[in-house]
Design a protein around this nucleic acid. Structure first.
Lengths: 207, 207
DNA sequence: TTATCTATCCCCCGAAACAGTGATTCTGCC
DNA sequence: GGCAGAATCACTGTTTCGGGGGATAGATAA
């Protein structure tokens, strides 16, 4: 018996999912909430196995709520729920510990499959959400100027915290040369200092 | 009809999966390879819908091969396949465009479900792999000293490429103060310069 | 055979970062 | 009321960074 709780600020959605699930015999309706506060209130004295959680809600949104829930009650599985399908939100939910993401217009079968999968510790994405996530991941890895191997090597060492003189000593170059490569990195990647260089490099997985 | 190709350096695994799948009527055996090179050779003149790909292979491993395949043939879905279950590898595969990950000892049902899900653009994780991935994500977000809200604010601005004087002007502080906060950040996070500070911040999702 | 790119090296200079030390005010908590 | 921590500001150095300018050699591609 899987106890399912739902948080959504739209009564229609709660009602719709409730009517979809109430006939299922291995699913129990644990409760419902229309915002993050009352959801957290519920879990002080109650529990559930799976929370269906709307991404966008007034006040604390699903991304934050998910993070709080997973810290306080790691055993409760969170399944993101939304009408729209944006890679960024999906990614943030997952980083905050969600176990999957489905669209509100999913079929009953998909919803049930998702609930079962996540209640067993698995991860579930509806086809469309999966594609959106992959598109998003792809979009951030493009349009970067090609770096030479030397530049990549020096970028890596900068990211490890070495200064120009230290890098020079390490790879047997003049520190002038290291500085030249460093300036080329800033110019090529169109950033103005080390901070934004490293941020870009890590985010774009150059290192 | 889903055309399935498999790359694995263990003949036993290829044979086992072949015998599992050959009875399925909506699955077609596209071919097999025992290393990355012959896999890439196959796809010069042939194609498939889904590749079951071993993570660990001699020569080019699954992580690299996956990246190459997804660049050359983005329409082919890659499903990671391994005997062991390590979050780091799973994460790397996913970052390189894989659509999921299952264990070699998965049940036939799980394997079929995974193949169908990814062939439709979805993402599939077996329960155990999903848990390993979440454990891994969690493990990297721990043991960090708590930053104050001011420190987080300034860290964010540093990461955006602003200098101390610029930050000072932006949030109406003395640049001495900004510098103090900056020093506290370096000390608290135990790093020695901006480069490693930003790297840590981005990797640990502090910003 | 030029032309371009990469990698290497060099110099100057001002701005920024980093290290060390110390101080005051405010706020939340016991 | 007192205490700890946060937030603020201050001064003095030294080191590193970043912008600007240039030079040479080798590889490679047009």
């Amino acid at each position: 018996m899987i106890r399912v709780f739902i948080v959504d600020d739209h009564p229609v959605v709660i009602e719709g999912i409730h009517s979809l699930l109430k006939k299922e015999k291995n699913i129990e309706w644990a409760g419902q909430a229309m915002n993050a506060q009352s959801c957290l209130g519920f879990f002080v004295n109650n529990t559930a196995d799976v929370i269906l959680m709307d991404i966008s809600m007034p006040g604390m949104d699903g991304v934050e709520l998910c993070a709080v829930i997973k810290v306080k009650y790691p055993g409760i599985m969170v399944l993101g729920l939304s009408t729209f399908n944006q890679g960024l939100y999906i990614k943030k939910m997952m980083e905050n510990g969600a176990s999957g993401y489905i669209l509100k217009n999913s079929s009953k079968e998909e919803l049930l499959e998702a609930i079962h999968t996540v209640s067993e510790g698995g991860i579930f994405f509806s086809g469309e959400a999966g594609q959106a996530l992959q598109e998003y991941q792809k979009s951030s890895i493009n349009d970067l100027p090609a770096l030479t191997s030397r530049e990549k090597e020096i970028l890596e060492l900068i990211a490890q915290g070495y200064t120009n003189p230290q890098i020079a000593e390490k790879i047997f170059l003049s520190s002038f040369t290291v500085d030249s490569h460093r300036k080329n990195l800033l110019a090529k990647l169109n950033v103005k200092n080390t901070a934004s260089l490293i941020r870009l490099a890590v985010e774009q997985k150059l290192i």
